[in-house]
């Protein structure tokens, strides 16, 4: 297939996944911010959400204060933010439109009608209830798109590039949450400084829609090291780094088989997968430290993104 087509398919999925991620972190932050300060932990939740989104620097070029109103507007609607939910949906649709012949009819219709409906949510001046409904809508749009891709695409290179976009973006997003919140995720051995952090941990789980999943997996109350384990190593958890990489390796292998050629991206992805297979959360805390582990993961993940681009998308 055309490299540009593959590139567009990959980015359509990335943008849709990113929009959903933003909706989830905004939703989780809104909950955390409404808690009485006695439960809410320290620091400014909105600032930390900005950091998680990766757009903090840009935000401060446009706004003075990271308060609810400014941050929600910036992350959800601002045209100044190329990664706002609105910008993501618009770019997803522009990418989809450029390659609509490579999408199934259902995928195109889903993304196009989401785009058309997005215009109804034009105002940044929504009340909280309207905003919550907007976030719900974004999640639904993403689920519908994902479902239409899963249910209607031929299992060929188009599908694999589209899935690669989902999992590359997802791995990056999960890593960002960990990167910003690493300081509340402490190892089992550490003395825990009170219950304030409990709401931080559950917020993290909410951000990856894993609050219920956590209990099913670990069958105990929320513990910070287990949150880290769930998000990094647990392959049952669809947003964990390990699960994302399992899929990345799979789809890159499919491509290599179909094209009869392995390349740097296959090798790199397998090296990264090996880390998840050969380490556990205890070792991360003891040997490298969570922060360093995540920082180097983000760098490696970016490197894999470049390798995929280099190998297939240009």
């Amino acid at each position: 297939m055309l490299s540009r087509t593959a590139d567009n398919l990959y980015w359509v999925s990335r943008y849709v996944e990113r929009a959903e991620f933003l909706a989830r972190i905004l939703d989780a932050t809104a909950r955390l911010a409404t808690l009485p300060t006695a439960y809410g932990g320290k620091g400014n939740e909105w600032e930390s959400t900005l950091l998680t989104s990766g757009a903090a620097e840009l935000f401060h070029q446009h706004y003075d204060e990271a308060n609810e109103r400014n941050v929600t507007h910036f992350l959800a609607f601002s045209p100044d933010n190329p990664s706002s939910i609105r910008s993501c949906m618009e770019r997803a649709r522009a990418n989809a439109r450029a390659v609509r012949t490579a999408l199934t009819g259902e995928m195109w219709e889903t993304i196009n009608s989401s785009y058309l409906e997005l215009r109804r949510y034009n105002s940044g001046d929504m009340n909280r209830e309207q905003f919550a409904r907007f976030l719900e809508w974004v999640k639904t749009a993403s689920l519908t798109f994902d479902g239409s891709a899963y249910r209607t695409m031929l299992r060929n290179d188009s599908y694999w590039f589209s899935r690669l976009g989902v999992y590359m973006e997802r791995a990056d997003n999960t890593a960002r949450i960990l990167d910003v919140k690493y300081h509340v995720l402490l190892p089992e051995t550490e003395q825990i400084g009170g219950s304030l952090d409990y709401f931080q941990w559950s917020t993290i789980l909410r951000e990856v829609s894993a609050l219920t999943a956590y209990h099913w997996v670990y069958r105990q109350s929320v513990q910070p090291w287990l949150v880290a384990d769930l998000l990094i190593f647990n392959r049952q958890m669809p947003r964990s780094l390990a699960s994302s990489y399992e899929n990345i390796v799979l789809f890159l292998d499919n491509l290599a088989r179909a094209y009869g050629r392995q390349g740097p991206s296959q090798r790199l992805s397998r090296t990264m997968m090996a880390k998840f297979e050969n380490m556990n959360v205890k070792e991360v805390f003891q040997q490298v430290g969570l922060h360093d582990f995540i920082s180097s993961f983000i760098v490696d993940n970016d490197r894999l993104g470049s390798a995929i681009t280099e190998q297939y998308l240009v």
């Binding site: 055309l2 490299s3 540009r4 590039f161 491509l255 050629r261 297939y312 998308l313």
Partner: peptide, 28 residues
Amino acid sequence: LADKLGIELVEGSDLFVRDEVVYMRTTE
């Protein structure tokens, strides 16, 4: 039309010319 014809929809940047032959850039 590209879809109905089952042919690639290309932009100028998807094509290049080498030794007076036209090629398209593909994932392969």
